[in-house]
């Protein structure tokens, strides 16, 4: 019997980076994810209650080898927690370990294999499911001709959202052009308001674009999920996250997660500030706003 080439066979040099990227969208213990394969790379999608969706984009440039042989775009469902736990066993502290990912296996599994040593190898087979289709579409459209967006230090964003935990279950986000600022506001048992002023806090707020005032409310637990699992490497490297408000108040939060350990393996390359764009995993969260009683928002 001639063996057919699998839909995907790819190899990655640094498992820990992949663990970091996937962990960023793991906001609870048991979560189902859908994985979509294409010639451009791998996308992993997680969703909750029709209000929150997260996507991890792993472009093919991240992989040292990427052989794609499928027609169309194969999709499969997998338990995110198990996937991360399995990948984690490949990761050895203080060194970067290579793995091979293959789909499908003989019984439609995802096959993971370590590549570092012939005499000590790790193998995993993860059962996949036929994915459910998502109930609603997260098509993100800009709110107007000019995007409403700001870029903020990931650590600061996470801290601000953590601080807003006590007032209540929904958080109001206000963007206003005059003075250019972002306001995060929680109301409930008490009030708490965090103002980020563009001109005053240039170290925190790296970019800001807004031509009219908008205000939307979001469920706290969904907002929290967008930042609570940002990996330590992002915080340590002082990276930024981009927040955009789209049509209807749809919130988009984007993080960039470094996959390769450039600073460890190539200290000289890193010191001149050279970063290959292919070494970054893109993470996007989409949060639907709560329906507001007053429709004072203009688009």
């Amino acid at each position: 019997m001639e063996e057919e080439a699998p839909d995907l066979l790819c190899q990655l040099e640094n498992v820990q980076g992949l663990v970091d990227a996937l962990s960023a969208v793991r906001w609870k213990r048991h979560q189902d994810a859908v994985v979509e394969l294409s010639e451009h790379g791998i996308v992993l999608i997680v969703e909750e209650s029709g209000c929150l969706q997260a996507k991890v984009y792993l472009k093919r440039e991240l992989f040292v080898r990427y052989e794609y042989n499928a027609q169309g775009r194969p999709r499969f469902g997998v338990s995110l927690g198990l996937f991360i736990d399995c990948l984690n066993t490949y990761s050895v502290p203080g060194q970067s370990s290579s793995i091979q990912i293959q789909y499908p296996g003989p019984d439609m599994q995802v096959l993971l294999k370590s590549l570092d040593s012939q005499d000590a190898s790790i193998c995993a087979q993860l059962r996949t499911r036929i994915p459910e289709t998502f109930a609603w579409d997260y098509n993100f459209e800009p709110a107007g001709t000019n995007p409403l967006t700001f870029t903020v230090k990931s650590a600061a964003l996470r801290e601000a959202i953590e601080d807003l935990e006590w007032p209540g279950s929904s958080i109001q986000i206000i963007l206003q052009p005059d003075p250019p600022s972002v306001i995060l506001r929680g109301e409930g048992h008490g009030d708490l308001q965090i103002d980020l002023l563009y001109h005053a806090h240039t170290d925190l707020l790296a970019a800001f674009q807004c031509d009219h005032r908008v205000s939307f409310k979001y469920k706290y637990k969904f907002l929290r999920a967008t930042t609570s699992n940002i990996p330590g490497s992002v915080i340590k490297e002082n990276r930024g996250s981009k927040v955009t408000i789209g049509r209807g108040g749809m919130l988009k939060v984007q993080h960039l997660i470094p996959i390769s350990k450039m600073s460890v393996s190539h200290p000289y390359v890193d010191s001149v500030g050279y970063q290959q764009p292919g070494r970054i995993a893109y993470i996007e969260f989409f949060v639907k706003p709560e329906l507001s009683e007053d429709s004072t928002n203009d688009y």
């Binding site: 338990s79 000590a120 190898s121």
Partner: peptide, 12 residues
Amino acid sequence: TTLVTLGAEFRK
């Protein structure tokens, strides 16, 4: 388990 098989092999 029903969902996953994870193993390590040390040879020679």
